[in-house]
Design a binder for these strands. Structure first.
Lengths: 203, 203
DNA sequence: GTCTATAAAATGATAGAC
DNA sequence: GTCTATCATTTTATAGAC
């Protein structure tokens, strides 16, 4: 791995623990065995590292996932279940040659979600990147629904945009809920919601 | 308002904009016309202000809301709609004599949600307070459902705990979604979801 | 209880050698 | 491209007067 990605990787890894703004250059230098000089050669300033991380580690995710889902065979509900589980598994790296996280197994979806939310909050200059990402996810759900309607796998008397909103809401909801509400397991959240979603979309 | 609450209020107001950790004591002093001396007389350290804010401004919310909903007459769906709209309206102050926000109208539910999430993320010492809050909300939904089943207003062949998870998920989901996804209005998110919820709970 | 002055540490960033 | 040394600011927090 080149130095630039090394810096990004170690910063990402540190940021996951307590937020990007709470990671100091000193920490990055000590943990990653890099020096101030290297950092400021590759990046304009500290926030430039964040921008690079967001673009490299986060925004590529959906494109990758779409490719993966293309090869996945199953009913709409199975595809949805796969989607939900895939995203909380955060299989970064397993299917991607862009990302080179050396510690792939340790990316926790809760920390990942919290980091994204905090970055969105505290770095308004990056918000458009997130808006575009969410638009992509929305389109993904809508296409999944329209395809299923075409194949007559689910009921057709319902607006695909509304259903996409509904699915997206539940997706965001159980991630958020399982993050800040440890009473139940993630599996419980996903399966309970899938069951009620199914009641709504079956023919 | 006494000095302690003045400090808390101005800190809360500043924190809403870009996160608690990004507010400096200097900012608090300048904005609130208070001095270092006053701050450290009333609070142990900076994080002690946050703890006070969380306890005063956030955790009391549910208790207040429960009281309000008791006086609200309507069907379960109407109660749910009221709940959803109430919480994004964040009617802090309108019904509470505990809170004394001088700038009540400016509390934006998106900023409020982002602040809570960031605080949860970056201040692990406060997580238990949030867990308890979420448990209270969960119990609220569960009781609403059980009451509705008893009154035979909704279908009874469904587990009240599962339905509570479902409602809570959607609540968390549309808050999160409308915060980071400006394509649609909040009203669109709420109404679309309510419609599909209704399909699930009607007799 | 509230003030000012100041300490002590940490932070992001730059300069210049190699 | 990478290093070390250092600057300039800002930060939280304390001390002591009133």
């Amino acid at each position: 791995m080149n130095k630039k990605d090394k810096i990004a990787e170690v910063t990402f890894s540190l940021a996951l623990k307590c937020g990007f703004d709470n990671v100091s250059l000193n920490q990055i230098e000590d943990t990653g065995n890099v020096t101030t000089g290297a950092i400021y050669y590759h990046f304009k300033d500290k926030n430039d590292i964040l921008k690079y991380i967001v673009e490299m580690y986060i925004l590529k995710e959906i494109e990758n996932f779409k490719k993966i889902l293309k090869n996945y065979k199953g009913t709409p509900l199975e595809k949805l279940r796969f989607t939900f589980y895939y995203h909380v598994g955060l299989n970064i790296g397993d299917h991607s040659d862009i990302l080179e996280l050396s510690d792939k197994t340790n990316v926790d979806y809760k920390q990942h979600h919290l980091l994204l939310t905090s970055v969105y909050y505290q770095h308004q200059e990056l918000r458009n990147l997130f808006h575009n990402m969410n638009l992509e996810i929305f389109k993904f759900y809508k296409e999944l629904i329209e395809e299923s309607i075409e194949k007559k796998e689910i009921r057709s008397d319902i607006n695909s945009e509304d259903l996409a909103i509904y699915l997206f809401t539940i997706f965001k909801g159980f991630i958020e809920l399982s993050t800040v509400f440890p009473k139940f397991t993630l599996k419980k959240f996903i399966e309970t919601n899938l069951e009620l979603i199914f009641e709504n979309i079956k023919k």
